[in-house]
Design a protein around this nucleic acid. Structure first.
Lengths: 185, 185
DNA sequence: CCCCGACTGGAGCGATCACTCCAATTTCTA
DNA sequence: TAGAAATTGGAGTGATCGCTCCAGTCGGGG
């Protein structure tokens, strides 16, 4: 189910498709998930979120700094090159979650919040002040998600590579204190 | 149709929903779009892409530099605050397009390519070298799309604001020469 | 050994899907 | 204004949707 959600989102995933690909039977499905497809989707999305969070945590821990950790995470998040529908396993379902159910949307939001928190924590470990860390984490997560989106649609890995460099640039050092120097140059 | 695609993507949009919301009748639909929902979706997505591209072009032209233009575009792209499903009108359909049809996917890819080209052209007008401009444009577009995604899922505008600052930081000045080799990764 | 609860497979349900088809109506053209 | 062409509304079609329901299967404790 998690794989189907990643490839085609919630609405496009039919019950018949799930049954034939997973090998389980109809009775089993509604015995273990009385709420039907909705409940199963929430559980699957949460599981995907946990997998992604684990990968992100490992990548950040293994890297010498946050930027390098994000770079490594981008490779992992993209998935094996053999997949034709690579990318973030949460984004497709997340984008349609507002019209599906508030609960599914909440699950998706929590997944992204966790990723953002992991990046922010690593930035603070790098010595970033609290405010800058959470703000930069939000922006870097957006950069990552956007790159995975563009990569899936275009089928080209260049978006991933460009996002990596941008992430390294953004996370090279905390922004200067005392107002943004960038203004109108 | 464009609004439905923005709010809920392709698969979640049913023919009945489209007819009642647009006011047109079934016969009209299949007269003007013999290809059915698929053909209509391609046309609607292309129209949305044109609208977004026009808004981006205007924002970039009216701004003193690329960074400020992207900041203004983010406000426009998010849409009016009254919308409960704001965000990029292309992304939801784009993410599921690979499993729908190659043509729909191509339309989505072309929309994003056009946006990227607009940003890159504005960067070159700012004096950026060709390679850095297209690479930065790709990253900034990813940043924008990711921020719109996170904003829709979380319902918070803070992601937009953080992405704006990150875009300004990324586009403040071209990266130093010598350290980056474009075209490889 | 038997039996009872947990679990499974599959037929069947009403609703809804995208779509076809055609008569009625409107709009264009001569 | 008359005939042709374009457009429209809506009933009807087969397929498929998520889901319910129940007979059958299984394994472990009395």
């Amino acid at each position: 189910m998690a794989r189907l959600l990643r490839d085609q989102g919630y609405t496009a995933t039919t019950r018949a498709q799930l049954l034939v690909e997973s090998g389980v039977s109809n009775g089993s499905l509604y015995h273990h998930f009385p709420g039907g497809m909705g409940e199963l989707a929430e559980a699957a999305l949460e599981a995907s979120g946990a997998v992604v969070a684990h990968a992100l945590r490992e990548a950040l821990n293994a890297a010498p700094n946050t930027g390098e950790g994000v770079v490594r995470f981008l490779d992992i998040a993209w998935g094996p090159a053999t997949e034709q529908c690579a990318g973030c396993p949460i984004a497709p379902t997340a984008l349609e979650s507002p019209i599906i159910s508030p609960r599914l949307r909440a699950v998706a939001a929590r997944c992204f919040d966790e990723q953002e928190a992991l990046i922010a924590a690593r930035l603070r470990a790098d010595g970033w002040p609290d405010g800058s860390a959470s703000e930069a984490a939000s922006a870097v997560l957006a950069l990552v998600e956007g790159a995975l989106l563009l990569g899936r649609v275009s089928g080209q890995l260049s978006h991933l590579a460009h996002a990596k460099r941008a992430a390294l640039a953004l996370l090279a050092r905390p922004p200067a204190e005392g107002g943004t120097r960038t203004g109108t140059f």
